[in-house]
Amino acid sequence: MSFAGKTAFVTGAGQGIGQALVRQLAKRGVQVCVVDLDSVSAENTASEIGGISLTCDVSKASELESAIETAREKLGQIDMVISNAGFAHGALDGPASADDQQWQMSWDVHVMAHLRACRAVLPEMLERGEGWLISVASAAGLLSQIGDAPYSATKHAAVSLAQSLAIEHGHQGIRVSTVCPLYVATPLLGYDADQPNDRPNDRVLTAAEVAATIVQGIEEERFMILPHPEAAAHFQRRAADTDRWIKGMQRLRGDAFESGNPQHFVDLHRLI
């Protein structure tokens, strides 16, 4: 696809992967609406790339619908919706340890926000016979995140939603992609946004590296975009022998907790 002259509505774009992605898009001639819960971050990023900014809590349907309508008024038609907003609070004592509020917020941000955005833009996209729907999920949506069941479950749902959108609307000119990175040096994992290269090894990618992979995947019209290629091998291993996969994850969970640092997410390359 050609990016020049297109418009994009990107959530969670004030920092991290979202910020790196809108920088990449702007360089390719895309008019970008930078959407973020943090108004200052959104405004600063939009100013940097020559886009527009909107403050929005994507977990609230009314705010998201209003933001899309405002973006449409300022940019004209919306060619691309990129749902990138996300969060992780952890549930270190297991799935039942997270309360309903955490589960509901995860559901609203990681799944319903993308669905609601699609509802708002799909009619016009279908009328034109063209549009792009992209969700930034996680490798947790293909595998599992130890110590954060709400995150894992809703990222799985996000990948499933993307698959359904591709199946149901692919013949109508709608391109769909989902992005499933492993570890990225962003504030979500506790990395300093001002020092993105301060990372323990080359398996932790910078936001800029992930953004470059996303743009390439969109250009190639790929459904599954994997910034970390090893995620595909892990996914295949899980599918081939799920019982063995679970036993491996149980061992890794034990190792993480015994080390006294359970929030230091385990290295998936150790799975067998």
Rank of each mutant, 00 (worst) to 15 (best):
K155P: 02
R270Y: 14
T186W: 11
A232V: 09
D267H: 14
S144Q: 14
F9R: 02
V121P: 00
A256T: 07
R72L: 07
R203K: 10
V266W: 15
G12H: 07
R23Y: 10
D148R: 08
N261Y: 11
E69G: 12
C180L: 07
Q24D: 12
G29H: 06
V34G: 01
L54N: 05
A207D: 01
V109N: 04
S41I: 02
A166F: 08
A137K: 05
G76P: 02
E124P: 02
A153I: 09
L188T: 03
A207P: 00
G190C: 10
L226Y: 05
V176E: 03
A120N: 05
A240H: 10
G76E: 00
A153P: 01
A185L: 06
G51P: 03
D194A: 13
C56Y: 00
S59A: 12
R251M: 13
S53I: 02
V159G: 06
K60N: 14
M80I: 14
S83E: 01
S2T: 15
A8E: 06
E73P: 09
W107N: 07
V204F: 06
I246M: 12
S66W: 05
E219L: 00
S135T: 01
R116W: 06
E63G: 03
G86V: 05
S138A: 08
Q250Y: 15
L122K: 04
I218V: 09
S59T: 07
R253L: 11
I214A: 00
E130G: 09
Q104I: 10
L189Q: 09
D57L: 00
M249L: 07
I167E: 13
S47N: 14
C180V: 11
Q236D: 15
Q77R: 14
R237W: 04
Y191F: 15
F235L: 13
G29A: 00
E230H: 12
V179Y: 04
Q263V: 10
E219P: 06
G131D: 09
G86C: 04
R128I: 08
A46G: 14
M105A: 12
V184A: 08
Q24G: 11
R175P: 04
V204A: 04
K6S: 08
I52T: 04
I225N: 00
G14T: 00
A98N: 07
L37K: 08
E48C: 10
Q102Y: 09
V210Y: 06
P181N: 09
V176R: 03
F3I: 10
A162I: 09
K6P: 07
S62N: 15
R119L: 10
A153T: 07
V111G: 00
S152R: 03
D148L: 07
L37I: 08
C33T: 15
A4C: 11
A233Q: 12
L143Q: 01
W132S: 11
Y183R: 15
P262V: 02
Q250E: 15
S62M: 13
L75D: 05
L133S: 05
K247V: 12
Q24E: 05
S144H: 12
R222N: 10
Q104F: 14
A113P: 08
A117L: 01
S41K: 13
G50N: 04
I52C: 01
V40F: 11
Q163L: 03
C180M: 02
A208N: 15
